[in-house]
Amino acid sequence: MEELLADVVGVLVVIVEACGAAVIIVGAVRAFLRFIWAGLRERSSSAFVPVRLTLGRFLALGLEFQLASDVLRTAVAPSFRDLAQLAAVAAIRTALNYFLGREIEEERRQVAAERDVRAQGVPATDPADRVRGRMV
């Protein structure tokens, strides 16, 4: 019975981890293409903020899947050493999830502020461009 449970959990762990990895890979590839697009087409640093925001969301979602797989793996971790490694991985993922959440919130505020400025009719300028005296 225990072996059957271990087998089932093992399969579930692989499936959930694969889902998390797929989310992270898709997010990274999408972000890479949009980084290149923003760099070559829009040529403004403000164009990169939404891209980083989206990448952060993908990473946070992928992390949720990976944390779920960690929780599943605790059901079948056989030795103290395995448990210690699992705890380290879970700690890293939890810390990153926390910091990513804060950064996403921060960047979302930044995007909202820029949208407000545009809505008030002020031309959107990039801070670095303003320093150089150039309008976007």
């Binding site: 990895a21 997010g27 760099g39 403004s44 980083r52 990448l55 992928g62 890293i92 993922r93 990153l96």
Partner: peptide, 29 residues
């Protein structure tokens, strides 16, 4: 691309670190 086109090394470093974090998470699988 960010360094060459936008000329903002801090932003480029942020972009690079974002992608490195994604790679690091994949290595934790």
């Amino acid at each position: 691309v960010v360094v060459v086109v936008i000329r903002r090394p801090p932003l480029a470093l942020g972009v690079l670190l974002d992608m490195l974090v994604a790679a690091g998470l994949l290595r934790l699988v």
